[in-house]
């Protein structure tokens, strides 16, 4: 589904990704771990198409299409979803209107008619239940006045509504208490299907207790330095990132 080969990317002339290789197939959950500042979020942004990063070299192939140079909204409509580490507030724009616009743009991209109002409403309600969102989310402005936890829940809620083929969750666990974490994990697990894939970016092993990955990768200094099964996460938890750093040196 996603194939990243020798990806090098920089920001303002500073190289962050120094040759990343990653293969993600449908039905898989990958976890990308690593200390702060090693390029995890950059990788997510580059896949999503954030233009502040310059892709110097390499390729990112999604469902056979090269993503490099493709606009952000087109990538999204191709089926890529990014759960943001710091979701931005958009004052005055209601969640309902936001999601409705998004879903209809997606449908338009795919040559479908707009989703009928009732169907859309039903979907909103269903996904609210999934994420145990009780507030009158529909009328609230996008992320405005949301607590840290609510923002993260809202990201997964949007993922549930848009039903992407590839979801990248960037530090979705940060700022969540244990109850919220369980809800978020439950939501993500429910959305797991053989025809979609998820990349979970996290600093801690904690989230992986609830979203069990098929593969774990350690990103360090702009490169994936180790890959393995879920046990790698436990090993990291035990030995800490110092272990990786030392191994590097």
């Amino acid at each position: 589904m996603l194939s990243i080969k020798n990806l090098r990317a920089s920001i303002e002339g500073k190289e962050i990704l120094k040759g990343v290789n990653l293969e993600v197939r449908a039905g898989e959950v990958h976890a990308i771990m690593g200390p702060n500042g090693t390029g995890k979020s950059t990788l997510a942004s580059v896949i999503a198409g954030r233009d502040i990063f310059e892709v110097e070299e390499g390729e990112v192939i999604f469902k056979g299409k090269n993503l490099i140079g493709m606009p952000v909204d087109e990538r999204a409509n191709e089926g890529i979803f990014l759960g943001f580490q710091y979701p931005v507030e958009i004052p005055g724009v209601s969640m309902t209107n936001f999601m409705r616009t998004a879903i209809n743009e997606q449908r338009k991209y795919r040559g479908l008619d707009s989703m009928p109002a009732q169907e859309f409403l039903n979907r909103m309600e269903e996904k609210k239940r999934l994420l145990e969102i009780h507030s009158k989310l529909a009328n609230r402005s996008v992320n405005e006045g949301f607590s840290g936890g609510e923002k993260k829940k809202n990201e997964i809620f949007q993922m549930a509504i848009l039903d992407p083929e590839l979801a990248i969750l960037d530090e979705t666990d940060s700022g969540l208490d244990i109850d919220a974490l369980k809800i978020v994990a439950h939501g993500v697990n429910t959305l797991r299907r053989p025809d979609n894939a998820i990349i979970v970016i996290t600093h801690y092993q904690r989230l992986l207790e609830y979203i069990v990955p098929d593969f774990v990768h350690v990103l360090f200094d702009g490169r994936i330095v180790r890959s393995g099964g879920k046990e790698l996460a436990f090993e990291l938890e035990d030995k800490g990132y110092e272990w990786i750093k030392e191994a590097q040196v």
Binding site: D73, P87, I90, Y109, S141
Partner: peptide, 22 residues
């Protein structure tokens, strides 16, 4: 960027945000 990532084109996003602002 946030709107784009949700598949909303820049033109639509501006319309959306401006209406939200107002």
């Amino acid at each position: 960027y946030y709107c784009n990532q949700r598949g909303i084109s820049t033109e639509s996003a501006i319309g959306l945000i401006v209406n939200g602002y107002a």
